[in-house]
Nucleic acid binder design. Sequence first.
DNA 1: AAGTGCATGTAACCGGTTACATGATTCT
DNA 2: AGAATCATGTAACCGGTTACATGCACTT
Lengths: 186, 186
Amino acid sequence: MSLQMALLTLISSGGPRSGYDLNRDFEGILKFVWHAKPTQVYPELRRLAAEGLIREQAEGSRGRRPYEITEEGLRVLRDWLTTTSADHSQRNETVLRSFALWLVHPEEAQAFLREEMEYHRARLRGMRATKKGLDPGRPADRAALLGVEAGIRRLEAMVSWAEWAIDTVADWPADTGDALSGSGAG
Amino acid sequence: MSLQMALLTLISSGGPRSGYDLNRDFEGILKFVWHAKPTQVYPELRRLAAEGLIREQAEGSRGRRPYEITEEGLRVLRDWLTTTSADHSQRNETVLRSFALWLVHPEEAQAFLREEMEYHRARLRGMRATKKGLDPGRPADRAALLGVEAGIRRLEAMVSWAEWAIDTVADWPADTGDALSGSGAG
DNA sequence: AAGTGCATGTAACCGGTTACATGATTCT
DNA sequence: AGAATCATGTAACCGGTTACATGCACTT
């Protein structure tokens, strides 16, 4: 359901877009918002076209199939925004793993946290670069700036959390033997 | 895959737990980390037991089936933590929707953002209450505190973002007619 | 001419959701 | 006695991933 809305949002905001363009968006600006593999995107575009929510334009070079949104597609998008409420279910493997960190040696826990810190710092740099590429003069970009700002703030939260967590784990008492018996790096 | 690890983490950290207990955890402390419906949890527990990663204890009152983690389960959990890296793919419908907000009237955009702000504030209160219930003297709770702190920081980021976004939308130029033609509340 | 990146797809499988079903225990 | 909550499950379906397949265009 929401994949359709994600595709309609991208197509409506970024002008005519092909499956390839959309896949790049999922890897770029939408990385922390929505994701889908190419094998899911292409059939879904066909379905949206069959439902009349998007329209295929003339085939471009290299077999590109650019789509544009239809009036009906816009209507459906607006309807979704105004009459349904957002699903808040989430999955975050970084945080899931942190719940289990008492089972490994502090050095291993810190190694994990450092890796996560670096990852989120890198993504944060990417997000800030993306932000610079947006034009506040364009209505669609103004909305995109809202989304990008959310991404930046969430990434900043993760980076500062990881920094704090590394310090916190350093202060954990040794717990000689019990939780870590049988652990690899013993 | 990660559902198994989520279940092992909960069972290892919280003492013997039944499917019902675990479902409550998914609705509570793990709400923003991992989620699974009861219909997925019960068969998965049977599978974990068949694989020898958890062990069923004596059936309790009301048909409760409490499980405890086995040595093999602990080994698998530690192995997952130390030899594989975290999947960072995410989906966040709140932020996805914000990318499309230029398509609706500013009042509708703000109504959405206000709703999200309230939702995240409420969840933040819940997370802070959860934090108070944890005992830093217990190793498992110390790790849980890392996870809960991540949740709090992410929720704080979302609340402050929503506040900022409401103000930002208020300053958007009117864009008389173009993007909003055909929109419901015209 | 070979290698890389562009660009789209199919089929099989698995993870996850929805709808449905059952019965015991506690509370009012 | 009836309602609410505890507690576990099955079956069908759908959304999403993995593995595989194809061919063109641009660069070196």
